[in-house]
Design a protein around this nucleic acid. Sequence first.
RNA 1: GCCGGUGUGGCGAAAUGGCAGACGCACAGGACUUAAAAUCCUGGGACCGUAAAAAGUCGUGUGAGUUCGAGUCUCACCACCGGCACCA
Length: 977
Amino acid sequence: MSSSRRQYPFHLIEPKWQKNWDEQQSFRAFNPNEEIPANHPFAARHKISGKVPAAQLPEKFYILDMFPYPSGAGLHVGHPEGYTATDILARYKRAQGFNVLHPMGWDSFGLPAEQYAVKTGQHPRLTTEQNIANFTRQIKSLGFSYDWSRELATTNTDYFKWTQWIFLKLYNSWFNPKTNKAEPIENLEYPTDCKTEIEKRNFRDSKRLAFVTEAPVWWCEQLGTVLANEEVVDGKSEVGGFPVVRKPMRQWMLRITAYAEKLLTDLDTIDWSDSLKEMQRNWIGRSEGAEVDFQIASSGTGVSPVCSQSESNLETHGRDAHATIRVFTTRPDTLFGATYMVLAPEHKLVDQITTPEQRDAVAKYKSEISKKSDLERTELAKEKTGVFTGAFAINPVNGEKIPIWIADYVLASYGTGAIMAVPAHDERDFEFAKKFKLPIKVVVLPNENKWFAENAPSDMKGENSVSKFETRYYNHPEDFRSAFTGEGDAGFSKNPEISLNGLKTSEAKKKITDWLESKNLGKRTINYKLRDWLFSRQRYWGEPFPIVWKKDAAGNLYHEALPENSLPVLPPNLTDYKPTATGEPPLARAKDWVNLPDGSVRETNTMPQWAGSCWYYLRYLDAKNNSAFVGKDAESYWMGSVKSLNGEIVTSETNSTIQQFNNSTKSGVDLYVGGTEHAVLHLLYARFWHKVLFDLGYVSTPEPFFKLVNQGLILGEDGQKMSKSRGNVVNPDDVLDEYGADAFRLYEMFMGPLEMVKPWNTQGVEGVYRFLGRVWRLFVDEKSETAYEQAETTKTQSHEELLDLILLNGEIMDIAATPAQLKMLHTCIKKVTEDLDGLRFNTAISAMMVFINDAMTWQTKPLAAMKIFLQLLAPFAPHLAEELWAKLHSTFGQISPSLTYAAWPKFDPALLVESESEIPVQVNGKLRDVIKVSATATQADLETVAKNSEKVKPFIEGKTIKKVIIVPKKMVNLIVG
RNA sequence: GCCGGUGUGGCGAAAUGGCAGACGCACAGGACUUAAAAUCCUGGGACCGUAAAAAGUCGUGUGAGUUCGAGUCUCACCACCGGCACCA
């Protein structure tokens, strides 16, 4: 407890109103056709009750927080930042007349509970439940207006039943490139050479959106599980920072790559920050280019087919696949400059093309590479390494024989795992060619001097002839500092059939690609950095897969989905949560669970934590539905696009970032607030699942989150990120004890713009706390407060009784406000309203402070003005506002008993008009005076008054006035010579 | 290296191209108090002035530019934060 005196009895007020809201179910959001009790304030506000269809409900507003992982450490001050912002808007939108959906739940599968279980044997569910209870207590103590009736946890069986159900939809779907969407697997057309049931099954399994593959994956020894690409950061696990290694394993994958293009282009239809969209764009990593086939020149090595239809969605270009290496390039215009090829060390043709003389060297290189961690492989400024295979390829445009190398700077997992090297026009190839003395052939010339000036060899300093530079660059490109990778004019690029010479890069790209396609040597291709999503984990505390494994007559293992009526698939009870001695996932310990009576065997992997968070925003819409993951009516009402506003709803046409976008595209969650750390994990995965569900007809919008805002990180008082080791962590419980929830909420919003990074400052909390104290003292009677304080020390009365001892300030009277008071009030209404629309909470709070500072000086406080002020304050400091509102109600009677549903005040522009205004007068742009003129003053009046100002005169006397600039109601500027 | 963001008092920050620093913190002085805390009032960009004022000059990371006028627009830099990074 603070040594200083409490500003106001928030310790009584806050629990009182939290209890009241809970009992009244004040923040229940009503679904279409759900019974709305006649005595609910929502019913009274909208004059509806009973079962109301969607068309007769008020317009919806779905405002969502990223649900937290309930960690053992409890809430940190960063959580309430986003939660407060959404809560303020939820309350504001409710007051405006929207049907507001504002839910909260728990992303409760997670590693810490499992690790605790491994260590202690305590079931992770128990740990999770304890943590949820603590988080619930903390979040409820902040007075957020969540509809708790929709609370969910991803670990609840009636939740993950539907996570498993969606997995079955993914499993039983494929992406049809012809319709460009996911379709049921039953619609799959089989190629003519798929005849037997086994062939068909293999083909089908290779097309599913959830599929099994044996591929190199990130294995984390310390965590005992594989991880997705997105969970690996700088060669370490994102959780814990443990090393990860590439390891081939049989794993479940989700075919997110099929949605790469949609995930990219649909970013244009949603209102997210540029930086976030850019992160997703970069992660998806689209590049346009061409695939080109290079024939292998060396003979004698039997090369087997590269493609089999079931594994690859690439088609052969119509040439003999037996003797070609396919490369991907974004610069087909530089094909004439390709002087060697490079394969990734893991490329499957490496062993087959390597000549006997080079076999040892290649084997040695490959083994060195395989031992390196990924961190070492991607080290910055690392020297290029590589080995010649002894084999050669034929450059298809000029027939030149070029050597084939292997090097780890070519990645097996991107493109075709092989490149044509054009050292003159690619920085990496340039470095490699210089190191291994490979030829560098210039085929693009820079068409401006700048590049030459920056990269020319030192002995050419002072030269200024472009042609000399060009000659030197062509003959000795290795003398230049770097490769020319920009766009320019093609040169030295012709064969008897085609010439690119003189063409701009973009034209040359098009011409050569057309030619390659016409000759069946290559084709246009788009590549993405995005990889399929590794979807299995070797863990206990996750959703089990609804999958069993069987053996066919030939002894081949294959997988099969369990029927929907077998859901949920519950995890078995274990006493030991470690992986088995043979490295199998912990679920494999439960032999009775794994082995089914019919001889089939359960999948023992579990889903990653991201699974549950991919669709929780849909479950909120209809959280108790037992027969569907979400009901149709609820889904289309809450996620549907905007409908025309009903008359009561006040929206600011200007400055509303929420309404910037075309209403026809506005759909899904209206506002989603959370941290930026989920930019390429949760937010990409959820969009992917949503698009699959959309394609399959289960949801009505292509995107889940229309507007998304990232709250900025809160740093410690020392300006460093908060951490235990620094000892600068601020515990929300302590802040609440000392200043109360309202002050805490207000401070988090007053610190600065929501999206900015900002340091915590406890004295700043004191500041807003004092402001709330001033509000309190403005409304209550000082003497009665003294009486209450004395009564409190005796501790014989209940909290409610104690609060009732405090009376309303006698200066508050039901009288008309003066014009000045009205102007003050309406300025405040306007500012708060517009700032809420623009999510500018900090300046909205300052506007209220300005109002209060002024109202403190009023002799009498007009009831109507004080009432409206409380409405403005309510979204920010709801407990205090409700308490004071109730006092107004008990004294004056005619006030609506429900502040939550009282209609948001409108400002009257007529009251803001100034009768007299102060106009700055400048001479040559410098401020010399401020003149007072009436609002009706003409421009000529303004000029006369300005010129006659005593302060202005010395600056214009004896000079000619060349020009007079008058901005009506703004300023006067006299230009003198 | 590439992409995105941010640079304004001692600090957090405000400013449709039009009086830079609203609001808050910290600080200083005063009132109340035996005293302190709390509260209330007053003052705070820098420089130069002055007994105190008033004038005046400079000032939004740096340098140019557009404009009657730039924190705001344009160009080129610098610094910090975040993301990506041998993706052909």
